[in-house]
Amino acid sequence: MAAIEAKRLSLTYSTEDGPLQALSDIDLAVAHGEFVSLIGPSGCGKTTLLRVIADLEQPTGGEIRVNGTTPGQARLRRDYGYVFQAPALLPWRRIAANVTLPLEIMGLPRTERRRRAQAQLDLVELAGFAHKFPWQLSGGMQQRASIARALAFDPALLLMDEPFGALDEIVRDHLNEQLLRLWRRTGKTVVFVTHSIPEAVFLSTRIVVMSPRPGRIADIVPCDLGPDRPLEIRETPEFLRIAQRVREGLRAGHAYAG
């Protein structure tokens, strides 16, 4: 059973200017333990696809299964953790309390909540900031806190929507390394939306190249760089070859759209 399986999936919004097709004919299967990136220009439906998987949007055609059930059932089972573009921390809760929010909602006992928050904050190197309020942290630290929050209830599936999009390159490199390490250690399934080619190639086992109007899959690029990926791997010919193929896929999608 695949972690995610989409067949001829489509989504059409009805807007004031008439119907808008956000997703068209998406066929995609993500196996357990994979790291799959969705890449494409804005308006290609990559965020919409992620939101459909998370049951935050309803598809208008086709079929989608998450761990063998509908996204709605998967959501009720709390199968996935979602990381948004913005940290979306609750400003009135301290960092530790933000991380324990999902645990409170799921009804875990207090000592267990505290233990897990501590462990997750250690993992994202925020141990010393548990009692700060979100505004006292930098953007990168806030986003790390939001990742700790998504990991706190240990979901097998992580859905990440351009989590590092708003951060500067140095912070981004650092967080990419951390995320890769985390994925290797935990064996979680990750679906990762990005518009950065190097980020996608660096992190993924497969890259789904999407193109806009209507949002569809232009190419699926395997990315078999192996599990050990130091930042320097980005200068190797293999890395550049994969990046080149992704770039061509993006360009072809654009030409097709006119």
Binding site: D55, G81, Y82, Q85
Partner: peptide, 14 residues
Amino acid sequence: ADPLARDLMRTYSA
């Protein structure tokens, strides 16, 4: 409340 925070609560099936 921030719409993202509302989506977040939905992902937790709150």
